[in-house]
Design a protein around this nucleic acid. Structure first.
Length: 458
RNA sequence: GGCAGGGUGGCUCAGUGGCUACGGCGGAGGACUGCAAAUCCUUUAUUCGCGAGUUCGAUUCUCGCCCCUGCCUCCA
């Protein structure tokens, strides 16, 4: 069974063949660091984290690069509004990004380049484009990319230059040879951050960053490039145009794009203002619930965000934790296995079909519970369970702690449980039930198991 | 208008040219329990937006229609 990927540029699933056997270079577009990340960003983090884990599990040595855009108009504007230096803002947001990604259980990429640290690479790339006649200096002094000079422009997004223009949503700018031409180097206005370049003091355009950083880390031709669906056009289209025209390489071979997170069937986005930051959500739900929520839908499908959906994810995750808790209580060894169920592996190999992978996980969970009920040897199942769960990055918390989150007085609860136990021994069930009801009113649910009574907070 | 992706049980989400349409949530019944909770078992879509076509056979392929969303400007 080999890995099949849906390649946006070909619009179909195809077998993945790495450029170098055993090795994968993967670049994922990160974020512009001017504000906290929202749930849409979380989806990219989580899905590519799962992809990263799966590729490594499949035996590849993965070079995973995810950038930070730390020069940009929005950053300049935000820093000005807050009256702080740009690097103070970007450092703060990068730290916040890491905190969010860590909370979501995402592994750090191999490299996390920042645009400001790759000025030379960008300037060199722009220089090459100018020399090859693919870019020009406009009347305003900005360096622009001439889309007409790149024959394949529009291939990724399936757009044609002429049709785009007739759509007339493109800015009319007299200094552009073609309305679709985009900025490679933007001249700085007074007070704006600037870097020296052959064309004067200025800063790079957004698209050139990713072309320069991806090629810089992974080479002119690399395996996988990913990001949100909204980056397909124009961002990724422009990246392709720049990189291929500049260095003659093939650039990315496989393009992976994840679907949006919607609210009320509408895209969550900054511009619509209908977004929730990751930290807002994780104040109310454990980050793993958010991760579970992402995994329950295929990465290319839209994902409708709501508290009801999160509640469902919580319930589903609880079910898994219930199994983990029982294994823990029973003392079943929980080492992870490299040998995963066939269906799970096949699902992940089939364009990272996490919903099917989860279905297999739930089936294993059920078999495990059943085996536990019957006192059978469940070590093999427990091992597979642990292996699957580790690859998905869920059920990574201590199972008993998972059910005991929140403000609780553990000692008081334990005392109540002991009191109830005595009452039950004396067959004073009225007293026992009264204690249980009392705890229940505080959101504490008791479970009388073979290994004694345990409690959980709901 | 161009392009892309969708419409599957009460909700959510997979999937396939044909045996019993995957899971999860919720509901119902049962086992277990003093009673619960958890778990397990059974059950919950004559049916996969609508119409036509191809086919021995379509939810799955083709065409048309209806509806939804996204991209076409910054956006994960």
């Amino acid at each position: 069974m080999s890995l099949m990927l849906y390649n946006t540029i070909r619009r179909e699933k195809e077998a993945f063949v790495p450029i170098r056997p055993g090795h994968i270079g993967m670049y994922v577009c990160g974020v512009t660091v001017y504000d906290y990340c929202h749930v849409g960003h979380a989806r990219v983090m989580v899905m590519f984290d799962v992809i990263y884990r799966w590729l490594m599990h499949s035996g590849f040595d993965v070079d995973y690069v995810r950038n930070f855009t730390d020069v940009d108009d929005k950053i300049i504007k935000r820093a000005l509004e807050r009256g702080i230096a740009i690097d103070v803002l970007t450092n703060e947001m990068i730290a916040a990004f890491h905190a969010d990604a860590d909370a979501l259980g995402c592994l750090r990429p191999s490299h996390e380049p920042r645009a400001t640290e790759h000025m030379d690479a960008m300037i060199n790339m722009i220089q090459a484009l100018v020399e090859k006649g693919k870019a020009y200096v406009s009347d305003s002094g900005d360096v622009l990319y001439a889309v007409r000079e790149f024959a394949e422009y529009g291939k990724l997004s399936g757009k044609k230059i002429d049709e785009l223009e007739s759509g007339s949503r493109v800015d009319v700018d007299g200094s552009k040879r073609d309305p679709l031409d985009f900025v490679l180097w933007k001249m700085a206005k007074a007070g704006e951050p600037a870097w020296a370049s052959p064309w004067g003091e200025g800063r790079p355009g957004w698209h050139i960053e990713c072309s320069a950083m991806s090629c810089g880390h992974l080479g002119d031709t690399f395996d996988i490039h990913g990001g949100g669906m909204d980056l397909k056009f124009p961002h990724h289209e422009n990246e392709i145009a720049q990189a291929r025209a500049a260095n003659g390489g093939g650039f990315a071979r496989y393009w992976l794009h994840n679907g949006f997170v919607n609210i009320n069937a509408e895209k969550m986005s900054k511009s619509l203002g209908n977004f929730f930051t990751i930290r807002e959500v994780t104040e109310r739900y454990h980050p793993e619930v958010l991760r579970m929520f992402m995994l329950a839908t295929h990465y290319r499908s839209p994902l409708d965000f709501s508290d009801a959906a999160l509640d469902e994810s919580k319930a589903a995750l609880d079910r898994l934790y219930e199994t983990a808790k029982r294994c823990q209580e029973t003392g079943v060894p929980a080492q992870q296995s490299e040998q995963l169920p066939v269906r799970f592996t096949a699902a992940m190999d089939d364009d990272f079909n996490t919903p099917v992978a989860l279905a297999e996980l739930f089936d294993t969970s059920r078999m495990l519970n059943k085996g536990l009920n019957e006192g059978a040897d469940v070590s093999a199942l427990a091992t597979q369970f642990a292996g699957m769960v580790a690859l998905l990055g869920i059920v990574q918390q201590d199972a008993s702690v998972w059910f005991q989150q929140g403000d609780v007085d553990e000692a008081a609860i334990e005392a109540q449980i002991e009191a109830r136990l005595q009452a039950r021994k004396a067959r004073d069930f009225a007293r026992a039930d009264a204690i249980r009801n009392e705890l229940s009113a505080q959101g504490i649910v008791l479970e009388d198991g073979a290994a004694g009574t345990t409690w959980k907070k709901i």
